[in-house]
Design a protein around this nucleic acid. Structure first.
Length: 273
DNA sequence: CTTCGTTCCTGGAAGC
DNA sequence: TGCTTCCAGGAACGAA
């Protein structure tokens, strides 16, 4: 599922194919994916616009399509944005087609159709979840001094806390499990029981697993592909996610699985405390 | 206020 | 073999 490193990889691979190109035609095959405005207005207001830049905030892709207009896309579980030559046929599960100048077509595809798209202007459309995003990993705003008081006030499991996008923008189920494995902290630990040293370990581990995910061009478990349709490589470097029952890479004990906040969770009962 | 459960959706795996 | 059931999960939303 696309988390921060995957969305960043989509951004990077999409950028050279679509930046500076003009949207000549938009077709929406599944209206409910367009959350704002109506799909008719969405099509009308995007047609003729030029993609000035491709940015990312948390797990959201942000395409600047004018001084006061942005196309904001959340891929959720199985969404993808792929740029390819216009003479190629539609990829599987194509839901929205963006025809661009210079013979390029960008497709929004989605198997489970949880993805969401918004066309916003500065004074129109508040996206719940976007405005309230917390600091990004690997930025100065994300640091132990920021994280410690939040954890101290929370009675949630630490995994649930770091999955909260208002606390940290961009961690999903894969990188949350990886972060806690690297930090040596049990996912079920209640956030306010973590020591200062443990908070620092979580902070450092979050930065490391996100940086590694980006360096490995994202994690492809099943459906994730980047803006050029290629898979990532980080699935070959994971400590725990998807490895339940397999030996811990540190101690060799079989990795345990459980549910935390309704999410499948894998950890090492020997290495994580 | 915080925290928890439900909901959306499809394809693949597991179970009978 | 072939059918049915379950599960994966981000985040909005309603309920406690």
């Amino acid at each position: 599922m696309p988390e921060l490193p995957e969305v960043e990889q989509v951004r990077k691979t999409l950028l050279p194919h679509i930046k500076g190109k003009t949207i000549t035609k938009v077709e929406v095959y599944l209206d409910r994916l367009v959350k704002h405005p109506s799909s008719e207005q969405f099509i009308k207001n995007l047609t003729g616009r030029t993609i000035e830049d491709v940015c990312r905030r948390g797990k959201y892709l942000v395409l600047k399509t004018g001084v006061n207009q942005k196309l904001i896309v959340h891929l959720r579980m199985t969404g993808s944005l792929v740029a390819q030559a216009s003479d190629l046929e539609a990829p599987p599960y194509a839901k929205i087609k963006f025809e661009l100048t210079d013979g390029v077509t960008m497709w929004f595809c989605d198997i489970r159709t949880f993805g969401t798209l918004y066309l916003v202007t500065d004074d129109d459309c508040y996206i719940a979840g976007y405005e309230t995003l917390g600091p990004e990993p690997l930025t100065v705003g994300f640091n132990p001094e920021y994280l410690a008081p939040i954890a101290a006030k929370s009675r949630k499991p630490i995994k649930t806390l770091i999955l909260d996008q208002t606390v940290i923008a961009g961690l999903g189920n894969i990188y949350a499990d990886e972060c806690l494995a690297l930090a040596g902290i049990l996912p079920t630990r209640i956030a306010n029981t973590l020591t200062r040293a443990e908070i620092e370990a979580v902070h450092e581990a979050a930065n490391k697993v996100i940086a590694q995910g980006i360096a490995n061009r994202g994690t492809t478990f099943r459906d994730y592909k980047d803006g050029e349709g290629n898979k990532g490589d980080n699935q070959n470097h994971l400590l725990v996610y998807g490895r339940g029952g397999e030996p811990c890479k540190t101690c060799g004990e079989p990795l345990a699985t459980t549910k935390v906040g309704g999410r499948g969770t894998t950890y090492c009962a020997k290495c994580q405390h």
